[in-house]
Simulated scan of single mutants.
Amino acid sequence: MTTAPILVIGLGCQRGCPASTLRALLDEALLAHGIALDQVQALASIDLKRDEPGLLELAGQLALPLTCFSAEQLAGYQGRLSHRSEIAFERTGCYGIAESAALALADQLGATSATLLIARQKGPKSTLALAVVE
């Protein structure tokens, strides 16, 4: 019997980014890749965003847990990113929040190493990536 893949959404956003903006980016990315929202198990970001109202509101709307990682934890994923942002590094100490956070949480939840199913997508004031563990 095969188990369903573990799907984790990583999110990055500027301060004050509304939940509606994050939700629009999420819906667009999932639709483009033929993934149903109910297949997503969790959301992830950087600990600098643990009190970000838009992220917390989105997690509440979707009834999904939001796990935040430190910049040090996320920096370890640098070699697995599709895109390295110097701006993100200057501001946070890691080269990509959405991809790194998605990979970090998927790795934590799965028995094998996670891969990016949806590489960094950029929306207004926000970024998103989706990692999977098969």
Rank of each mutant, 00 (worst) to 15 (best):
L81W: 09
A131R: 05
L55R: 06
L62N: 07
I35Q: 06
L26R: 09
G10S: 10
Q108I: 01
G10E: 08
G110F: 02
V133G: 04
Q78N: 10
F69L: 09
E52K: 12
E28Y: 00
C94Q: 04
Q39R: 15
I87K: 15
T2I: 12
L117K: 14
I9M: 12
A59M: 12
L31H: 14
S100M: 09
R80N: 10
L109C: 04
V8R: 05
E134R: 11
E52S: 10
G79I: 00
G60I: 03
L81G: 02
K49V: 06
G76F: 08
E72Y: 01
L117W: 12
L56W: 02
L25W: 02
A59C: 11
L117V: 09
P124M: 00
G79D: 14
S20C: 08
C68F: 07
I118V: 15
A114N: 06
G79L: 02
L56K: 13
Q78G: 12
K125T: 12
L117H: 07
Q108S: 14
Y95M: 06
A59R: 12
R50N: 13
I6N: 01
S113P: 12
L11Y: 05
H33Q: 14
T115P: 00
R15I: 01
S126A: 15
A101I: 08
E134Q: 10
I35N: 07
L81Q: 05
Q41E: 15
R23D: 12
